[in-house]
């Protein structure tokens, strides 16, 4: 398939695509398996785009469209930040910025039994994993990893949460560590939890550090790597000059 892509003059990989664009012609590539991610659909014999964004390709056969939105569409194995909106006998109802509220079963905790159901107040912020995401059902969450361990999931106490876009979350979670976090980490110590649904939680020893970190992250959304480093540097220069 690699060969086919390179001979095709109009290969759209790493290009910006808009809905309706046709990226692959299946009739010309028999007996090949391809995997489609978000933003693509099969329309008869062709693969077409349904969301505007950058078309990505990962060897050997994965295609998806990368885009940034303010709304989150749940998908399995995403780590998200949710807010408890209601407590029922069997489930917590959690808002994860999706089309519908998500269910967090009261037993989906490490060593969870009927006896030790955790108590969350309405408004509590949780770091959770999406385990079921069918379009016609409410998504289901879990506070354990696949092996049943708590693994950092659960209640986020104190700190400050702000909402941004899914694109910013993906940038913060990308590897290698994104420059804004790296540079902030050199000067300050802080805790951060990033949900793929565009929510970011920050905690540090002093409120002023939290404000600095949160502000720097929010500012970095549309900046390049070099611009991010300059922005962080300027921020610290400003703070130093104002405290002296």
């Amino acid at each position: 398939m690699e060969e086919k892509l390179s001979v095709s003059p109009a290969s759209l990989v790493d290009q910006l695509v808009v809905p309706g664009d046709v990226i692959l012609d299946l009739s010309s590539m028999a007996n090949q398996t391809i995997k489609l991610g978000g933003g693509l659909r099969q329309d008869g014999d062709v693969i077409s785009v349904i969301k505007a964004g950058k078309l990505r390709f990962s060897k050997p056969n994965k295609y998806w469209v990368e885009s940034s939105h303010k709304r989150y569409v749940p998908s399995v194995e995403d780590h998200v930040l949710g807010i408890v909106v209601d407590c029922k006998a069997d489930n917590f109802l959690v808002d994860i910025k999706g089309p519908s509220l998500a269910f967090l079963p009261v037993l989906a905790f490490e060593g969870g039994t009927r006896r030790n159901i955790p108590k969350f107040q309405v408004g509590a912020l949780l770091y959770v994993r999406v385990v079921k995401a069918n379009p016609s059902m409410n998504p289901e969450l879990s506070c354990t990893d696949a092996s049943g361990k708590a693994a950092e999931f659960g209640l986020l106490k104190d700190g400050y949460m702000f909402e941004s876009s899914t694109g910013l979350s993906r940038m913060l979670l990308s590897s290698p560590t994104c420059p804004v976090l790296e540079d902030l980490g050199k000067k300050l110590s802080f805790e951060i939890a990033v949900g793929l649904n565009g929510r970011v939680w920050v905690n540090a020893d002093s409120p002023s550090s939290i404000v600095i970190v949160a502000k720097a992250i929010m500012n970095s959304e549309f900046l390049s790597a070099a611009q991010q480093r300059i922005m962080v540097k300027k921020l610290f220069d400003k703070i130093q000059s104002s405290t002296v």
Partner: peptide
């Protein structure tokens, strides 16, 4: 609609 990321057949 494109900005919101609503799935569309074409523009």
């Amino acid at each position: 609609l494109v900005d919101a990321g609503i799935p569309m057949k074409h523009l």
